[in-house]
Computed example of a mutant assay.
Amino acid sequence: MRVGVPIFLFLAAAGFHTALTASLESAEKEDTFVGLEQLSDLQKRDQEEFEAAQMSEAVQDENTEEENDTQEEDMNRDGNVEADQHESESDEDVDGMRQTREHLEANVEEADETTNLAEVE
């Protein structure tokens, strides 16, 4: 009987050790699984934030392009208005010159008529 007690204690300690090791490994696997789930959730969240940031940048790029297009249109419109004004001023200058020429021609004709009348008398 003296030999049986130490063997029984040894087997009990070995069984306890095996059960404890299995329990710790199981808990470690669960922690790893939970850690992977948390990591997976973090990756999903990061991916969503990344996609949202990309969409925001795309919207900003579109707005910037639209603003640039609008500015170009405004500049073109202003250029066209200036060209139209310049063209109008040129037309007015031509009209003014035409009137002046016509006035001078009329004066020359009157002077010619006056000279012709003076010569005739």
Rank of each mutant, 00 (worst) to 15 (best):
M1W: 02
M1A: 06
R2S: 06
R2M: 06
V3G: 00
V5K: 02
I7F: 03
I7P: 06
L9W: 06
L9Q: 03
F10H: 01
L11Q: 08
L11G: 01
A12V: 00
A13K: 08
A13C: 11
T18V: 09
A19N: 04
L20V: 12
T21Y: 11
T21M: 05
T21P: 01
T21G: 05
S23Y: 03
S23F: 02
S26A: 12
S26D: 10
A27I: 07
A27K: 05
K29T: 01
K29S: 05
K29Y: 03
D31C: 07
T32S: 08
T32C: 08
F33A: 13
V34M: 09
S40D: 03
D41T: 00
D41A: 10
L42C: 04
Q43I: 09
K44M: 13
K44N: 13
K44Y: 09
R45N: 10
D46K: 11
E48G: 00
E49S: 03
E49I: 08
F50Y: 13
E51A: 15
E51G: 07
A52G: 04
M55E: 15
S56K: 14
A58V: 06
V59K: 12
V59I: 15
V59C: 01
Q60F: 05
E62K: 02
N63L: 15
N63K: 14
N63P: 03
T64K: 08
E66T: 13
E67Q: 12
E67W: 06
E67D: 13
N68W: 01
T70H: 12
Q71G: 04
E73I: 11
E73G: 04
D74A: 13
D74S: 14
R77K: 07
V81G: 07
V81T: 15
A83E: 04
Q85F: 07
Q85E: 11
E87S: 09
S88K: 15
E89N: 06
S90M: 11
S90A: 15
D91C: 03
E92F: 07
E92G: 05
D93G: 01
M97Q: 08
R98P: 02
Q99P: 00
T100V: 13
T100M: 04
T100P: 06
R101P: 03
R101C: 07
E102V: 00
H103N: 09
E110Y: 02
E113V: 03
T114F: 08
T114P: 00
T115R: 12
N116Y: 00
N116V: 02
L117G: 04
A118H: 08
E119V: 13
E119K: 15
E119S: 15
V120L: 15
V120W: 09
E121Q: 00
